[in-house]
Design a protein around this nucleic acid. Structure first.
Lengths: 233, 233
DNA sequence: CGTTCAATTGATACGGATCAATGCAAGTGG
DNA sequence: CCACTTGCATTGATCCGTATCAATTGAACG
């Protein structure tokens, strides 16, 4: 029996570049793993032993300075690839933001398999290039944008990447979604403090650009003005 | 005749993953190009038409916000790869910081060639993964470090990556190098202003950690204390 | 109803941006 | 060879945005 057959990310993860036979071979190398919210899957600086795909849930990639301040380097959604293949050490930590399900491989086994399957490597290269572009976009944000700009950009990214949950239902072009991160996580991602994030959110709310039904949910009420904020100096 | 035979980066650029025959084939697709200091090779947002290798000189990768503020996303040294293969648009600009010599390929031709040579793609994947790690390290810097920490980190990175030029010569463990960037470029890279960069440099000088023989050169006099500064909040 | 934990709100301090002036070296033309 | 220009870099004074410190509110849960 092949666990991949009913996998929800079968067509969107790197696996999509494999034939049924190849998939079977890869499947025999991997195993499923559940992660609880808050659980760390990979530790920064550890030997790189695992790589894998996210099947369900949201994780973060993060790194800490010597004095303990944390910076989140990226958010990882279902069908994204995790880990550092072809290298001895994990350069960053991976932590589950929600309960999550991942499909993991021993790095050495994955590396070997990948080298024998150029299509897989090509897919991985494409993903890595895209991720590099995305990361550089965040660099621009961290280097040059104001707190408002950062929060607005973040909300737009989430509106695009997080699975939208049904809005108010009427004809309005409202976009609603749940935040998989708490305020502290957002602050770590944007290079701000929790207080500043909070103030910016209430600021956007008071301007009527967004609504905050509850602490985990966001509704974008005026996407155009939000875009305007996202470009702020 | 094969221009690659006497190429100075033959063994360190992506070309190192190719046999002599393959190299000949790739060579027939490429052409050499000279760039003057300040010249832009790729424009952010343009159709991605070119990729290539840096043979000589230093370039920067940069992106601008809508209101014109610029952020440098990376520095590109000889044997580094330039451009965005496998994608229709260039997401960032590439500008020469010094006079430079690059070896360019039409993207479509390169893409096709790469897909037929898994070794080359593997090498490119490795490079991209390394570059992604490096970029994320800069994210940590931009998000969480003070001005002093940023400048110190920058100097350390340059001390490692730029070709060292002979120090004072005596037994001191002084490390000297030339900056390929002006103050404005440094500011753009670190997400600071030119004034702040200047103040931090003179600060480090006044503490005796570095010396500034002239505006383009730096001598690190106390690497340990510089490391200390680099970790500053 | 009290406990707990996260988020919000308020008051203040500080770091870096901004605005403005000066300094310094490399051309340029008389 | 020397005045003049030009383009960076440095230095100074002030302002503003975000961090920091501290208190309050609000929701989830026993």
């Amino acid at each position: 029996m092949n666990a991949c057959a009913q996998c929800t990310v079968r067509e969107t993860a790197i696996c999509s570049s494999l034939s049924a036979d190849e998939l079977g071979a890869l499947n025999s190398l991997g195993r499923h793993q559940m992660l609880r919210r808050g659980q760390t899957m990979v530790w920064q600086g550890d030997e790189s032993l695992l790589v894998g795909n996210v099947i369900e849930g949201v994780l973060k990639l993060s790194s800490s300075t010597v004095d303990g301040r944390e910076q989140t380097l990226g958010i990882i959604f279902p069908s994204d690839f995790i880990g550092r293949p072809f290298g001895p050490t994990a350069t960053h930590s991976v932590v589950a933001l929600t309960d999550a399900q991942v499909c993991t491989f021993r790095r050495s086994a994955f590396d070997e398999f990948a080298q024998q399957h150029p299509h897989l490597e090509h897919n991985l290269l494409q993903r890595t290039l895209t991720e590099l572009d995305r990361t550089r976009q965040w660099m621009l944000l961290l280097g040059r944008k104001s707190a408002t700009g950062r929060v607005a950009s973040f909300l737009m990214e989430m509106a695009n990447r997080a699975a939208p949950c049904a809005g108010a239902g009427n004809g309005a072009e409202t976009i609603g979604f749940d935040l998989p991160l708490g305020r502290q996580d957002i602050a770590d991602l944007l290079g701000l403090t929790i207080e500043t994030v909070s103030r910016q959110l209430t600021g956007l709310r008071d301007q009527g650009i967004i609504a905050i039904p509850n602490r985990r949910a966001i509704e974008v009420r005026d996407m155009e003005r939000l875009e305007g904020c996202a470009e702020e100096a």
